[in-house]
């Protein structure tokens, strides 16, 4: 098999995963951009928030996505600052994955320290945004 044919075969097989994931995420983002989460009646409510009033690290991410899709960075930041940092990073990482899969080169997950540091950031963010003094900065805007 020629190198060209090998690359073509790899391209078909490996591109499927990032392509499908990208299509799903793009569709979901388009839906969120069109249907405003700020107005009640379109999305499920979060059980944790409803039952306990606690804001998990993802609270406000849906509204932040809506604001990001409308390029309202300030509004998105007031909803979930961590998500405003994380969402474009994830998009860039997906782009890298897609590019590597297209050219048939292997791609590895991020190094292990990133995983544990990321989990720590998530937990600390989740705790801090529920502290009353910081909830104005880190929590979703009312």
């Amino acid at each position: 098999m020629t190198a060209e044919a090998r690359t073509r075969e790899r391209t078909r097989r490996d591109v499927a995963a990032p392509a499908v994931l990208g299509a799903i995420v793009a569709g979901a983002t388009a839906y969120v951009a069109l249907v405003d989460p700020n107005s009640p009646g379109h999305y499920l409510t979060c059980p944790l928030l409803l039952l306990t009033g606690l804001e998990c690290p993802g609270c406000g991410a849906l509204r932040a996505t809506h604001d990001l899709a409308h390029l309202d960075l300030a509004g998105a930041w007031s909803m979930n600052p961590l998500w405003v940092v994380l969402a474009p990073t994830l998009v860039l990482m997906w782009g890298w994955w897609m590019a590597r899969a297209w050219t048939g080169r292997p791609v590895r997950p991020l190094p292990v320290p990133v995983a544990w540091v990321g989990l720590g950031v998530l937990v600390v963010f989740g705790v801090l945004r529920n502290v009353p003094a910081l909830s104005g900065w880190l929590g979703p805007a009312a």
Binding site: H42, T45, L50, P132, G136
Partner: peptide
């Protein structure tokens, strides 16, 4: 079901 956006407790 349809209370997103209106159940955020007052800060």
């Amino acid at each position: 079901l349809y209370t997103v956006g209106s159940t955020i407790p007052d800060q």
